[in-house]
């Protein structure tokens, strides 16, 4: 669906030269090029249809730049971007505009709403610029507003809405053009924690029905864990590690990743399948079974009730067992992979 290969973005007077100098050097991260900022440094990844791909990194690590490169809101310095097989960097203005109008929509950190337009007109904006007639676009916009739970607010101005509501408008606006791909640049970072959680749930709810291919930027690791099918950890313009939440928690590649993983809600992230012992001998199935994708959180009440181990089912057939000790170890120890010897 979306394939990026070796994307670079360098800010400065002569980005091409800087790229040539930096990209083909050994131990490039030691090298400097005066007066230039390397915001994105040889990033490659692929997002599959319906998947939510999260890019997580501290501020200044190049996330916004990366996501803007995808539709060339920022012109990448080098690399290839394929969206449904089409090379974005080869597109002319017209094709690029059509890509932005119909295929890819974006939700911004600071909402990016147009303050002089009412909610309805904001949501309809994407349709308006591709020349959809007023009635059709207003109908569609009203539908979207309802979908994000803002019915009744159509004729308000953005300034009259709370932050959370404004971002709902942003979401509705992005959905209104029915894009194949959604790009989110830290959409919830400007919101209060409670509202943020509400919005995350809202997004998950929408995703469970819409299944849009998404690239989601965040600097908040728990948010990444909650939303992402796969997560890329970004640092200084590079991906440090890419994997499912569980992979990251279980096998952080380096201390940088480990530092994030440390406070992860392991009970939610880890699954029975990941910590089970494959040794099935001597453990009679006693009716206490769990599916292998069940989070540890779901196992805790059962284990609290009774001491006997649980049988993990993978696709209906027993694949291993989990006992109280294994769960406790998984919850407290950092490197579960090492502990279980898997």
């Amino acid at each position: 669906m979306l394939i990026c290969t070796d994307i670079w973005k360098i800010f400065g007077p002569t980005p091409e030269k800087a790229h040539a100098a930096l990209a083909f050097q050994v131990a490039a991260d030691k090298l400097s090029y005066p007066d230039h900022v390397v915001a994105v440094r040889g990033v490659s990844f692929e997002v599959k249809k319906g998947e939510t791909f999260v890019v997580m990194g501290l501020s200044g690590s190049g996330k916004s730049t990366l996501v803007r490169c995808l539709t060339r809101l920022t012109e990448p310095t080098a690399g290839q971007i394929l969206i449904e097989g089409q090379d974005v960097r080869r597109m002319n203005d017209e094709a690029l505009r059509n890509l932005r109008r119909h295929k890819v929509s974006m939700v911004f950190q600071n909402f990016g709403l147009l303050p002089h337009r009412r909610v309805l007109d904001n949501v309809a904006y994407g349709l308006e610029v591709c020349g959809v007639d007023r009635r059709t676009r207003n109908d569609r916009a009203a539908q979207m507003i309802e979908l994000v739970g803002l019915k009744g607010w159509e004729s308000k101005y953005p300034r009259q809405l709370s932050g959370g509501m404004q971002q709902r408008v942003g979401l509705a606006r992005a959905l209104a053009v029915n894009p194949d791909i959604l790009l989110f640049d830290e959409p919830f970072s400007a919101l209060d924690p409670l509202i943020r959680r509400e919005m995350q749930d809202e997004l998950l709810r929408l995703q469970s029905t819409l299944h849009k291919t998404s690239v989601f930027i965040t600097h908040d690791f728990p948010e990444a864990l909650k939303i992402g099918d796969r997560i890329a950890i970004m640092k200084d313009g590079q991906f440090v590690q890419v994997g499912t939440p569980q992979e990251l928690v279980l096998r952080p590649r380096d201390d940088y990743v480990r530092a994030f993983v440390k406070d992860a809600p392991r009970a939610k992230v880890l699954t029975a399948g990941a910590i089970m012992s494959r040794d099935l001998r001597g453990r009679a199935p006693n009716g206490r079974t769990v599916p292998s994708h069940a989070p540890l959180q779901a196992l805790l009440p059962m284990l609290a009730e009774h001491d006997a181990p649980l049988t993990v089912l993978d696709g209906g057939t027993p694949a291993g067992v989990v006992d109280r000790a294994a769960v406790i170890r998984a919850l407290v120890e950092e490197d579960v992979a090492r502990a279980t010897g898997a």
Partner: peptide
């Protein structure tokens, strides 16, 4: 004009003229 508004308009595939007329001039 706030660059955010212009960027959003750009992200939705507005032409230069559309940005001018629908975003920059009103703001």
């Amino acid at each position: 004009v706030q660059p955010a508004a212009v960027e959003a308009a750009r992200a939705f595939g507005s032409t230069r003229w559309q940005i001018l007329r629908k975003v920059q001039l009103p703001l």
